[in-house]
Design a protein around this nucleic acid. Structure first.
Lengths: 208, 208
DNA sequence: CATATATTTAAACAAATGATTAAATATATT
DNA sequence: AATATATTTAATCATTTGTTTAAATATATG
């Protein structure tokens, strides 16, 4: 084992990461075999350990990246001091649905892995970006003060926004079955929700 | 291996099932080792196979029961022809939140296992209880016709109800971190939602 | 009580799985 | 070109893991 390579072949390393992202996301950490990743990447099994030392270290990298991607849309929007509360909700929902149509199984991957592991990554990310102290939360508190929206814990509104946006993707296998929907029908509903969810959120915010 | 026992000891069998339910729900199928279950149940490893033949068969039993429990609240409420649409929403949400406070990790268990397996159980259950043909859906369609609620696919309303109710539990590890909440705070919010969600749903139903 | 049947146990097996090794090949450096 | 370094490969290892076996113990039945 060399400590470090002076020159890396990005192609092989990337092939492994891409394969790992795909397989881990589909099957979870425990359900993924290193041989699955090697096969998916079209590389020799030993290369996985050569480039990433262990299954766990590779997983940590993939999880960190997935989590960052999942949070990125939110964070940039939340801390923008120029946009109104309404605009924030609109762009958050729209950004998320676009992301989720492209990568529908990121949330379930993150949430199901989080279940077991009080993951370091999440703790770190949460500290770095304390939601409760974001400009978004200040705007909600201000709107409550001005009696523009109802006096309910702002966390409810955040939960509602995430729930309405993310849950349909998390539950899509069940919802498709229960609702008798094809993928095409499902995607159409999700597109509709881009415009509907902001309206719904605003309506709920006025409920006493 | 005997084909069938004439007399079974319900105590041992139940111990295994209870342990299996706990471990499978926490760690998922792939993450669960038969030895984990045996240890949790306080029984000899071989008894698992003696009573249930294999890990997979035991899992199928647990999954079926969990799924049935998850659907039961919904189905009985949905097909009741005596209650109004409003009352249905209220009792559904309230039933679900009570269930989820007691068993918070059932939904994530079901959804994460469903991700891989286009499970037979779900297909069967869905056929038996076609949501789209339930009395609940007829009531929504009727309300749309009478212009009491907005003309949007009824599936949206169903999604919204499930999202607002179930998602906070599925995402609780993340929400607790992001929202800086203790378990106590979280439970309090969920109790508040029992009354809030029905109001929110009704508000969204009038959004054009 | 004697015998059959059911349950439990410790030990072992076979396959799967994460990781390593040493040799072979490719690539860079002088 | 010669040498050093990096990458790739096939084979192997050590553990883990689901399952089975055969013997021991408990329980029921006649």
């Amino acid at each position: 084992m060399k400590v470090k390579k002076e020159i890396i072949d990005p192609s092989t390393e990337e092939k492994i990461k891409n394969a790992a992202r795909k397989v881990f996301t589909q099957k979870g950490y425990a359900g993924t075999k290193t041989r699955d990743i090697a096969e998916e990447a079209g590389i020799n099994l030993a290369l996985l350990n050569y480039y990433f030392r262990s299954k766990e270290k590779l997983f940590d990298i993939i999880m960190l990246e997935s989590f960052q991607e999942f949070m990125r849309s939110m964070i940039s929007v939340f801390n923008d001091e120029k946009t109104s509360l309404e605009k924030k909700i609109e762009s958050m929902v729209s950004n998320y649905i676009d992301l989720l149509i492209k990568q529908p199984d990121i949330p379930l991957f993150i949430l199901s892995e989080l279940r077991n592991n009080p993951n370091e990554i999440v703790k770190k990310m949460s500290l770095d970006n304390n939601l409760m102290k974001s400009f978004f939360m200040k705007q909600i508190q201000q709107a409550i003060k001005e009696e523009k929206i109802s006096d309910i814990s702002p966390v409810h509104f955040f939960m509602n926004m995430m729930s309405l946006t993310v849950f349909p993707f998390v539950a899509s296998p069940m919802l498709k079955n229960l609702g008798d929907l094809q993928q095409k029908d499902f995607d159409k509903l999700m597109q509709e929700r881009k415009k509907l969810i902001p309206k719904w959120i605003k309506a709920t915010m006025k409920v006493k």
